[in-house]
Computed example of a mutant assay.
Amino acid sequence: MDLFSHIKEEEKPFNKKTKIGQTDIQYIKSASILTEAKGFMNAYDYTLNPYTGCSFGCNYCYAAFFARSSNDKDNWGKWLKVKENALALLQKKRKKPLIDKTIYLSSVTDPYQPIEKELQLTRSILKELLDFHKVRLVIQTRSPLVTRDIDLLKKFEVVQVNMTVTTDSEEVRKAFEPLCPSNKVRLKAIKEIQANNIQACITMTPLLPIKDPQTFAQELKNTGIQKFIVQPFHPDKGKFIASTKQDALSQVKKMNWNDEKYNNAVKVFKEKLPWLGEGKDGFAPI
Score class of each variant (00 low, 15 high):
Phe240Glu: 14
Lys253Ser: 14
Ala265Pro: 03
Tyr262Ile: 11
Phe176Glu: 08
Leu276Ser: 02
Asn197Leu: 13
Trp275Val: 01
Gln214Ile: 12
Gln246Val: 11
Ile193Thr: 08
Cys180Val: 11
Ile210Trp: 09
Lys221Gly: 09
Ala189Leu: 10
Val230Ala: 08
Lys227Met: 07
Gln199His: 11
Lys272Asn: 07
Ile225Met: 08
Leu220Ser: 04
Gln251Ala: 05
Asn197Asp: 15
Pro181Phe: 10
Cys201Leu: 12
Phe228Pro: 04
Pro274Gln: 02
Val266Leu: 15
Ile229Lys: 05
Ile202Pro: 01
Gly277Ser: 02
Asp212Thr: 10
Pro232Cys: 08
Gln194Phe: 14
Pro178Ile: 06
Thr203Pro: 01
Ile241His: 14
Glu278Pro: 04
Leu249Val: 10
Lys245Tyr: 07
Ile198Pro: 10
Gln226Val: 04
Glu278Val: 15
Ile190Phe: 03
Glu177Pro: 02
Val230Trp: 01
Lys253Gln: 15
Pro206Cys: 09
Leu220His: 06
Asn197Trp: 07
Ile225Tyr: 06
Pro232Lys: 13
Ala200Thr: 06
Val185Arg: 13
Asn183Asp: 10
Pro181Trp: 03
Val230Phe: 01
Asp236His: 12
Asp236Glu: 15
Met255Trp: 14
Glu177Asp: 14
Ala248Val: 09
Asp259Tyr: 03
Gln231Leu: 06
Gln199Val: 13
Lys237Asn: 11
Asn256Cys: 09
Ala217Glu: 04
Asn256Ala: 14
Phe269Ile: 06
Gly279Lys: 00
Leu273Cys: 03
Ala217Met: 02
Ser250Ala: 14
Phe233Asp: 09
Phe176Arg: 03
Pro274Arg: 05
Asn196Ile: 10
Ala284Glu: 01
Ile190Asp: 00
Asp281Leu: 12
Asn256Gly: 11
Gln194Gly: 08
Asp212Ala: 08
Thr203Trp: 00
Ala195Val: 04
Val252His: 02
Gly277Ile: 05
Phe269Glu: 05
Lys272His: 01
Asn222Trp: 01
Lys253Ile: 08
Pro181Ala: 13
Leu179Tyr: 12
Leu273Met: 02
Lys227Leu: 09
Asn196Pro: 07
Ile225Ser: 10
Tyr262Leu: 12
Lys237Val: 12
Lys174Phe: 00
Glu192Trp: 04
Lys221Glu: 09
Lys253Tyr: 05
Asp259Val: 13
